Amino acid sequence: MPAHHTRMNIIAAVASCSVALVLVLLKLWAFGQTGALSIAASLADSGMDLVVSLAAFAAIFYAARPPDKDHTFGHNKAEDLAALGQSLFILAAAGVIAWGSVHRLISPEPHALAAEGLGMAVMLVSIVLTLGLVLFQRRVARLTGNRVVAADALHYIGDLLPNIGAVVSLWVSSRYGIGSIDSIVALAAALFMANGALRIGKGAWNALMDKEAAPEVVAEIEMLAGSWPGIESYHDLRTRSSGSRVFVNLHVEIDGRLTLTEAHDIGAGLRHAILRKYPQADVIIHKDPIRHPAKEAADHDVA
Rank of each mutant, 00 (worst) to 15 (best):
M1R: 13
M1F: 05
I10E: 01
I10G: 02
I11R: 05
A12G: 02
A12P: 05
S16P: 11
C17V: 15
C17E: 05
C17F: 09
A20N: 01
A20M: 02
L21W: 05
L21V: 07
G32H: 06
A36F: 00
A36R: 02
L37E: 09
S38P: 01
A40D: 11
S42H: 09
L43Q: 08
G47F: 00
A59K: 02
F61P: 15
F61L: 15
A63D: 02
F73R: 08
G74N: 12
E79N: 14
L81K: 13
A82H: 15
A83W: 08
L84H: 07
F89T: 14
F89C: 11
I90M: 09
L91Q: 13
G95D: 04
I97Q: 09
A98K: 09
L105F: 09
I106V: 14
I106F: 14
S107N: 15
L113R: 04
A114K: 06
A115K: 05
E116L: 07
E116I: 05
G117Y: 08
G117P: 06
M123E: 10
V125W: 09
S126Y: 11
L129Q: 11
F136W: 10
G145T: 00
G145A: 02
V149Y: 03
A150W: 02
Y156A: 02
I157K: 05
D159A: 11
P162L: 03
I164Q: 11
V167T: 00
V172K: 00
S173N: 10
G179P: 07
I181G: 03
I181F: 14
D182N: 01
V185I: 13
A186L: 12
F192E: 04
M193D: 04
A197R: 04
L198E: 04
R199L: 10
G203F: 02
W205I: 15
L208F: 04
M209K: 12
M209T: 14
A213N: 05
E216Q: 03
E216L: 08
V218Q: 12
A219G: 07
E222D: 06
M223L: 15
G230F: 04
S233A: 06
S241R: 08
S241G: 12
V252Y: 00
D255C: 04
E262V: 04
E262I: 07
H264A: 03
G267Q: 02
A268T: 10
A268P: 03
G269K: 03
A273M: 09
I274L: 05
K277M: 07
I284S: 09
I285C: 04
H286A: 01
H286T: 01
I290S: 05
R291C: 08
P293F: 04
A294E: 07
E296A: 07
D301E: 13
